[in-house]
Design a protein around this nucleic acid. Sequence first.
DNA 1: CCAATAGTTAGACGGATGTGAATATAGAGC
DNA 2: GCTCTATATTCACATCCGTCTAACTATTGG
Lengths: 92, 92
Amino acid sequence: MAKVFKALGDPVRLRLLSLIAAHPDGEVCVCELTDLFDVAAPTISYHLKLLREAGLVDHDRRGTWVYYRPIRERLRQLSALLAASDLAGAAR
Amino acid sequence: MAKVFKALGDPVRLRLLSLIAAHPDGEVCVCELTDLFDVAAPTISYHLKLLREAGLVDHDRRGTWVYYRPIRERLRQLSALLAASDLAGAAR
DNA sequence: CCAATAGTTAGACGGATGTGAATATAGAGC
DNA sequence: GCTCTATATTCACATCCGTCTAACTATTGG
């Protein structure tokens, strides 16, 4: 669980997730994201990978482009955890 | 905001907060905490400081002992953020 | 098949982070 | 005031993390 929170604990990743989760289409092309940050493309790729490994986003390739979308169930799960202040089970 | 999530992104800190938030008395003496971890006391102190700086816990000294308690409003705020998937404002 | 574009991976490097040992501070009790 | 206990702070050090450049893979279109 700490891993998930750690994934959220970086400004770039938090903003990436924010953009992905808030996008009207429900998914975002990586090409739309890279321009919005002043870090190089590989760095974006690295952060997206961490978000993926934390189970926060999913992705698939369509043609040349790769699309990311949030795993909302996971976000809800995190939210519930904090709401309950029942973090008892989180320390694993 | 990333700072708050980063504070949660360490196993020791997550468990510390968990213990503090779940304690029946609403607060916990540091002396109760140190034994539960296999890291040295200064390390616990260090982690508690980070939780404090993230605005997740508050503390006060009573005699020789120091007591920590959760700032529940902050936890609720985090929870709401993830629930809404309205992370839009979080990236700051 | 070749060139061009989108994205990822590999390697290197500096700076941040978690830890322990030693030291310091605060309060209680003599 | 001195001593003992509980916590915090400082310092040093090894590891982890975020970033870049360069090289690689995948896909499209000539």
